[in-house]
Structure formats: C-alpha cells, structure tokens
Write a protein that binds this DNA or RNA. Structure first.
Lengths: 237, 237
DNA sequence: CGAGCCGTTGAGTTCATTCAAACAGGGTGG
DNA sequence: CCACCCTGTTTGAATGAACTCAACGGCTCG
C-alpha cells in the first residue's frame, strides 16, 4: 500500500527527451564507463565540493540533498535529488555546498565533468542527454522558486507535498512517503521546523491531508491544497 | 559616472568556459544562422509560450524578465535575464510563463530548440556551449533560491542588490543602476512593493547603501549588507 | 535505562502584509 | 503653459503571520 522510500521512482524519468533508459545500450555504456558508483547511508556526504565544478552526480536510488551553509550557520537546501535526477555542480560554488544522502542505501553515480564533456564531443547523443539533464535541473530549480515564492507557510508546505507526490510516483497518486525529516523540509522551504510542523497540523485539521505517522501523507483535497489561499482553512491551530 | 542601463554589461560573460565570443567564427555563424533577432521596448513580450519548449532565448542587450502568473493573480519572476544570459524554456511549462522586456531597446536572439539540438549534434563545440549556458541558468536559479531563502526582507533586498551589482558590472563596483521597477523587484523577491521600498529606506538610513534617485544605488557597506542579520540596523523606519 | 534525535505544541515577540494616502515625474490635451 | 492623468515610489496604521524560546512526548540505539 504505502511505497517504501528506497523503491520509489526507480524507473520513472519524467521529461527527458532522451531518458537514460531509452538510449542505445552502447551510449549508456559510455556514460557508465566514466562513472563512479557509491552507496551511502543517511547523513553521509557524497563529495565535499573542494574540486569546484569537477563532478556531476546522478542519484540512482534513494535520495540526496544539495545544500549550502550560510555564514550565519543557517542551511538552505538548494536541490532535492530523487532517482534519475542530475546535479551539475555550479561552475563556481559561491559558498560551501554539500551533497548529502537523506535515506539509507542511496546509490549515486559520479561523473567527472571533463570526461562527460569529452564524451559529449565524441558522441553527440550523449551531449543531448546532458542537455536534457541540465534542462531538468533548471526545471526543478524553477519549481522550487515557485514554491519559495508562495506567501504563506501553508501554501509552501502544500505545494511541496504536491510536488513530492508528483516526483515520487509514476502514476498520479494521492499518497506519498516523505523522504526527509521535518528539519530537511524546513531547510528546503526556508521555514522554521516549528512552522512546518504547525502547517502540517493545520492542513490535517482542515481535511486537506491526512497523516499516518510522521512521514506517510495522503492528499485528501488536492485542489484546495494547491490553490493555497487558505480557502476555508481554520487559521487557528 | 552612472552607467546607462542599456549599455550595462554588454561584453561581459562571466563563467562560460566557452563564451560566445571566444569560439571560432565559423561556429558562431552557425548559431547565429538559426537565430531570430528581435528588438523590443519595455513591457513588450518576446514570446507567449504557446509552443512549449520550442525556443531558447538569449538577451543581447538590455534586460528581460521571465515570469509566471499564478492562479491567484500574483506574479513570480523566475529569472531576470541580462546580456549574454540564456533562457532554455522548460520542457514542460507547468503554467503560463511569459518573457517580457524590462528596459527599452532590448535585443533578444531566439533559437528554435530543434535547430539548436541539430546543430549540437553536428557540431560538438556548440553542444558544449549549450551545456555551459544551461549550467549558467542553473547557477542563476540557485542564487535566486539562496536569496529567496533569506529570512528577512532586508536580507533579501541586500542580497539582491549585491547580486545585481555583480551581474551588471565587469569590474567589482559599488555602484549599480537598477534595471527594474520596485514592482519587478517585489515580484522577483516574493515581497510586497511596500516592503521592498521600506527595506531600501531602512538600508539607506542604516548607512548600508545610498540612493541617488530611485534607481541609482551605491553600496556603502558591502559586508553588513551581505551578512544581513540586521547587524546594528535600526529596526524602526 | 539514559542519551539523543525527531516531532509537536504553547506563549510572546517581531516582522511582513494589507489598506490607505500622499508625493514626484512624464506625458498628453486643452 | 498649465491642468490632468498615470505610473512609480514612499510612508503610515493596523492586522495577521512566522519566528524564537521553551517544554514535552515518542522513538531508536547504545
């Protein structure tokens, strides 16, 4: 009934024109040949970003967060990577960024950027794949901007839930398993943990969602959830 | 002394490994050969996004905003494009997006996506250029996320000013000409216009910036401006 | 069993928003 | 030339929302 975190969205690739799996085996071999595959558990870093812009990463299974630590000690998650999501490291990392695994047994492939580029030059198909990956990354960032641009915390959390439901399931479903803790959600949405928790409580009391345990969410009223504008949600508690 | 908006940052290309100007003339000709050049004035749309993901855009001079209109009528600017910035349209535009010019006499090049891809296949160098552009776009989005992730309005506005100063000048400078109205800044930072105006006033009274007219900004105390955390700024008025 | 992490709830404060009004500048038409 | 309008910008007052600080319960793991 409830999907297990580590098995979520293994085969799904949403808007690639040339998804990894549909390409000729020979090309896939080429990309794989330069990859380093790592398996990590929750809390472990994939790479600590000293060699700026040297690697590209692709989550095979599980999930990872790409975050930055601000001078004040606050953390902002810039991207949440699910299976088949790519992270092209920024050409210049303005501050210290980290890629960290959020669920156990997460598998990540690492590609040296120079090798990818060399491969893209010799094999244009791979170049198109890389383009598609990059467009995906832009798309994810735009969607995050859209979520962060919401005015109220409830809207942010609601949009986050809908987006995660889309991303973690191939079929349109109203159930989702949260892959991250409240703290990670807070750092992703630029809210405090308490506000995230309170928002979920409000959405639950309003009948927009239901919770089975802290991480199992069922979307009850998708429309009101995405329109946000507290359409009749009791403001108190 | 003060730079004119339309002449800002015409020749600058920050972190391309293969900037448009450094490549062999033959390749540039190829990219230009599929481009449609348009000149527009403030408020005019470049393209209304019906043909989803069909075009890529590059601002040659001037500036443009890429925004989305939310169901509630609110607008969120997803990207602010300065000269040499690319906008690869999202593979799927989740809602209605618009690319609109914000300063007069803005020149934009439009490239059909299919043609770009065909060109990238036949000429790998172009493929690398496209990759670099896409990485730039991701980088801009991450920086916007970083700004939107700030907690207070003053921090957002401060970070915005510093970022724009970086982007609109080749040399490190403390002066900048705002290319956008307060309304656009508000829609970019997900704040209300009044809050943007108030934040600027607070920063001015705190001695962090000085204003010569609504659009001419001089950064007086860069350090306090980027650290944000209202380090001694009078909270009142 | 205690320690630590995660999640929730409460109380008080701070901050951004909304609604409202006023002002400046650029343009047009009388 | 001046009156007028329109857009853009600023400021005020009051409301509402999120944050901080604090405490507590549940759970896992050593």
């Amino acid at each position: 009934m409830w999907e297990v975190a580590s098995s979520v969205r293994q085969v799904h690739s949403r808007h690639h024109d040339l998804p990894m799996g549909n390409v000729r085996p020979r090309d896939s071999e080429h990309l794989d040949s330069i990859a380093t595959i790592m398996k990590r558990n929750r809390g472990q870093e994939i790479h600590s970003w000293e060699g700026q812009g040297e690697y590209w990463y692709r989550v095979i299974s599980g999930a990872a967060k790409f975050y930055i630590v601000l001078p004040g000690g606050r953390r902002q998650i810039l991207d949440l990577l699910l299976p088949n999501d790519f992270l092209g490291s920024s050409p210049y990392s303005p501050h210290y960024c980290t890629l960290e695994v959020v669920v156990n047994d997460t598998v990540v492939a690492c590609y040296p950027r120079k090798s990818v580029e060399a491969l893209a030059v010799s094999n244009p198909e791979i170049g198109l794949q890389v383009q598609a990956m990059a467009r995906d990354a832009v798309s994810r960032m735009q969607e995050l901007t859209l979520i962060l641009g919401r005015t109220t915390a409830r809207e942010k959390v609601g949009a986050f839930l809908i987006k995660m439901a889309e991303r973690t399931s191939t079929l349109p479903t109203d159930r989702l398993m949260l892959l991250t803790s409240r703290y990670d959600i807070a750092e992703y949405l630029a809210l405090s943990v308490e506000t995230v928790s309170r928002s979920l409580t409000v959405l639950r009391h309003g009948g927009l969602i239901s919770l089975a345990g802290p991480r199992r969410v069922k979307i009850m009223d998708r429309h009101r959830l995405e329109e946000g504008r507290h359409a009749g949600i009791a403001s108190q508690m």
